[in-house]
Simulated assay, not measured.
Amino acid sequence: MIAIINTGCANINSVRFAFERLGKTPTVITSPEQLAGYERAILPGVGHASVAMKRLVDNGWQQAINEYQRPLMGICLGMQLLCESTEEGNVQCLGKIPGEVKALDVGSLTSPHMGWNNLSIQQAHPLTKGLHKDDQVYYVHSFAHTVNDATLVSSEYGQTFSAIVAKDNYAGMQFHPERSAKVGTRLLQNFLDWQL
């Protein structure tokens, strides 16, 4: 039912375990040809955007993700790769979600942005069901998607940035839902429940 795309740029076990706690057993897939056989998919990611994007392109994932018509969600760097471009390495990304990823302007705050932070709902969506304004999620990042029409939920750290984005069948969460306790569990369940 659920595919976790293994591009070699993510620790996928924590994501897999989070879905198993919800009673689902995702399959880690390593070949783009496998993707079409699943009802929904997760694109996790950690590390440098230019390295991760090169792996996606070189290994044929870009076309498979472009052709996928069911719910697909990126997590952390995976979310950023679904956007149009990123300042990290100045690379063009998959272009499935409108908007650019830029370095966080943290001012006098510490970078990267690491730890728990509040969510602010910008627009209602199946992915935001059950969220409350005092809910917190866990972040580790120094780049973020600029707030635009694709932004469902935002957070603030030196500046306002997108926490959850969505366009058509593609979505992204900048934080780590798999590390975000009950709130993260709720959000992953929302992804499982999301009907296009």
Rank of each mutant, 00 (worst) to 15 (best):
A64F: 03
A150S: 15
M53P: 05
A171V: 02
A144V: 02
N117T: 00
S120M: 05
Q195V: 10
H145C: 14
N148M: 07
P71H: 04
P32I: 04
E88D: 10
G60V: 14
F19R: 07
R40N: 04
A18D: 08
A171S: 15
K167R: 13
Q63S: 13
H132D: 09
E67N: 15
G184V: 12
T86G: 05
A41P: 03
A49L: 03
V183R: 01
T110V: 15
V51G: 01
N11C: 02
K133G: 11
A163F: 00
D168C: 02
G8Y: 11
H176Y: 01
D105P: 00
S108H: 13
Q34T: 14
L77K: 15
V51F: 01
I164P: 04
F175R: 10
V46A: 06
Y138G: 04
E88L: 14
A36L: 09
G99W: 05
R16E: 15
H176R: 06
Y139C: 04
G47Y: 03
C76E: 09
T151K: 06
A144N: 03
L35F: 02
L119I: 10
P177E: 15
Y170I: 14
I97P: 11
N13L: 14
M73G: 00
H132C: 12
P32T: 11
R16S: 14
K54W: 01
A18N: 06
K133L: 08
G60T: 13
K54G: 06
E156S: 15
V153G: 02
G78Y: 01
D168V: 04
L196M: 10
Y38T: 12
G78C: 07
H145D: 01
Q123E: 12
E20D: 02
K24P: 00
P32W: 07
H145G: 05
T160R: 15
N11V: 07
S111N: 09
Q174V: 02
A103L: 13
E39G: 10
V153D: 03
M1I: 05
V57E: 15
S120G: 01
Q195L: 02
L35Q: 07
L94N: 10
M73V: 10
R21F: 00
K54E: 14
L43I: 05
H48V: 14
A163R: 01
D134C: 00
C93I: 07
M53I: 12
H48P: 00
V106H: 13
H176W: 06
P44H: 08
Q189S: 12
T151A: 07
G172E: 05
C76H: 10
I29G: 11
I4F: 08
I75N: 01
A64W: 06
Y139Q: 02
D149N: 15
Q62L: 08
V15S: 06
N169A: 09
L22D: 06
A64L: 04
T185P: 00
P32F: 05
T27L: 10
I12P: 03
S108F: 05
H48Q: 14
G89Q: 08
Q136E: 13
L77Y: 11
K96A: 04
L109H: 09
W194L: 14
R55Y: 13
K102Y: 03
V153I: 01
V91G: 09
P126F: 01
N90M: 09
A18Q: 08
M173L: 06
H176L: 00
L196H: 06
E100I: 11
H125Y: 08
A163H: 07
